[in-house]
Amino acid sequence: MSEQPTNGTETPGAVVDLLGLLAYAELVAFFRLSEDASLAPTLADKAELAQLATVEFGHYTRIRDRLVELGAEPGAAMEPFTAAVDAFHAQTAPNDWLESLVKAYVGDGIAADFYRQVAELVDPGTRELVHEVLSNAGHSEFVVARVRAATENDPKIAGRLALWARRLVGEALGQAQRVAAERAELAGLLVGRVEGAGGDLAEIGRMFARLTESHTARMNALGLST
C-alpha cells in the first residue's frame, strides 16, 4: 500500500503537486547547468558546473523515488508544471556566464524559499526531503566568489547584474503565482498555513517579507544593490 501523508493538514494531491513541481524544476536545473557550462571561461569552471549539475540530477532522482513511494507516476506528477517552468527559463535565458550564475543563485534561490514555505505543512518525511534538495550544495559559495571577483575587476558590471537580478525575482514570483492559480490543491497548502496561524491573513504578507529579506541577503552576498 502506498504511503499517504499523516498530519491531516495537507491533501495527498497537494503533496504530489509539490513534489512534481520540484522534480521538474530539479530536472531542468540539471539540463540548464549542463548547458551553462559551455559559457564558463575556464576548464575549472566548466568542471565545477558539471559537478553541480550532477547534484541536481541526484535531487531529481530522490524526489522521483518519493513520488513512487506515494503511489504517483513521476511523469504525470511533473506534467502540469512543465509550461510554467519552461516559460520562466525561456523568459530569463542568460546572455553570458555571469548572468547564468546570478540566475542560478538569485532566481532559483527565491523560488526555493517559496517552496520551503509551502513545504511546512506537508508530512515530515516529505518536508525533510524538500529541505534537503533545496540546499545549495556548495552552489552559493561558487557563485558568490565568481560574481564578486568579476565586479571587483569591473565595477560597471555590478549595475547590469543588479538589474538582471531584479528581473529574475519578478519572473520567479510571477511563475509562483501562475502555478498557484492553476493548481488549487498546491495553493491550498499556503492557505492552510494561514489558517493554521489562527486565520491571520497577515501571514501572507509576512511570508513575502521573509522572501524579500532572503533576496536582499543574497544580493548583499553578491555585492549587488537591490
Rank of each mutant, 00 (worst) to 15 (best):
L168F: 01
T92P: 07
R206S: 05
K46H: 12
F208N: 00
V85F: 12
P124M: 04
A23P: 07
P74E: 06
V130F: 08
D96E: 14
G192H: 01
T82H: 12
V191Q: 11
F81P: 06
E69S: 11
P74F: 05
A29C: 15
L129H: 08
A217D: 13
P124D: 13
L101A: 05
A84W: 10
K46V: 15
S140T: 02
H139F: 13
L70A: 12
E35Y: 12
A221N: 14
E152S: 14
G170V: 08
N220H: 05
V133S: 10
R146G: 09
E26F: 07
S2A: 15
W164T: 01
Q175K: 15
V194L: 05
A93F: 04
V143K: 02
G109N: 00
S214N: 09
A217Q: 12
V16C: 15
T11W: 02
V106E: 03
P5G: 04
F114W: 11
R64I: 06
L39Q: 09
A176R: 02
W164V: 01
A180G: 09
G13Y: 00
T226N: 08
L22D: 03
K103D: 07
A149H: 07
H215E: 06
G8N: 13
R160F: 03
A184I: 14
S140E: 09
L49Y: 05
D45S: 10
G170Y: 02
G188F: 00
T42G: 06
G20C: 13
Y60C: 11
T126V: 14
G75Y: 08
